[in-house]
């Protein structure tokens, strides 16, 4: 049974506000605990998940934030898997992610995003509220799960093979540009095709996403010849983007 405890926005806000209000010595004490990954105020059902995620986090951290994001995302996806009943409805429920961020994984969420927003900092706060609970498309653990889900290529190995070449900006560019909504098949094909792009630069994925949103106003990718694959071929040609001739899926 997948644990799906919830924390409402208000409950999360109170919890984080309380941390923001801690005196300097008490806050330092809390951070010292978090640095040693000591977190105990969560339901026991999450023990196994927490141990797995923390182990992955520690292993991947030396390889940079993107690698860490990916590996934590996969670890979450393994547990909160659609095949195990973690439905679209549950995955979209911010309260479930708020519980995970604020109760189960506050230590690594804080370490990943240690800088609070400007206005929070000005009020003497310490915590990045958006990444913990307040911004639906920026709750860190939620973005990682969705990044894996929207990029899924059929297996973890194939998905990793596609995603390993990208960077942290790709996560936000994918998650935050929803348009009318996510077209799952299109996004999965897009991530695969983008992994075959020869010369990637930091703005390229963003440019693709923007043009895609414009095109989708008139064109429905699933209805183009060869569906999403055909549509993306047109989109890449439109933007003069070259991709590797070799399609790893077909070896053509």
């Amino acid at each position: 049974m997948i644990p799906t405890k919830k924390l409402t926005k208000d409950q999360a806000k109170h919890l984080i506000d309380d941390i923001d209000k801690l005196s300097a010595p008490l806050f330092d004490e809390l951070i010292a605990k978090w640095k040693n990954n000591i977190v105990d105020d969560f339901s026991f059902e999450y023990n196994e998940l927490r141990n797995k995620v923390i182990a992955v986090y520690k292993e991947s951290k030396p390889f940079g934030w993107y690698e860490t994001d990916l590996k934590v995302g996969f670890a979450l996806y393994r547990e909160f898997n659609p095949a195990n009943g973690f439905s679209f409805v549950l995955a979209s429920d911010d309260d479930i992610w708020r519980y995970l961020s604020c109760k189960v994984f506050p230590d690594i969420t804080y370490e990943r995003y240690p800088t609070p927003e400007k206005e929070i900092l000005e009020q003497g706060g310490h915590i990045n509220h958006k990444r913990f609970y307040s911004h639906t498309r920026r709750i860190w653990l939620k973005t990682l799960w969705w990044y894996i889900f929207l990029s899924w290529q059929g297996s973890e190995a194939e998905t990793y093979d596609v995603l390993r070449r990208f960077g942290v900006d790709t996560i936000s560019d994918l998650i935050e540009r929803t348009g009318q909504g996510y077209r799952l098949a299109l996004y999965r094909q897009l991530m695969y095709d983008y992994s075959r792009v020869k010369n990637k630069n930091t703005d390229l994925f963003n440019t693709i996403q923007k043009q895609n949103l414009v095109n989708c106003r008139t064109t429905e990718p699933a209805l183009v010849k060869d569906a999403e694959k055909g549509y993306l071929g047109m989109l890449f040609r439109q933007l003069s983007i070259e991709i590797d001739d070799v399609d790893r899926r077909t070896n053509e």
Binding site: F88, V89, S92, T178, G181, R183, L184, E220, A222, L223
Partner: peptide
């Protein structure tokens, strides 16, 4: 010409054909 139904589920930010 073809006819399709495009569905959008705003609450869960998803859509399909």
């Amino acid at each position: 010409l073809g006819i399709c139904i495009i569905w959008t589920n705003k609450t869960l930010k998803q859509m399909g054909t």
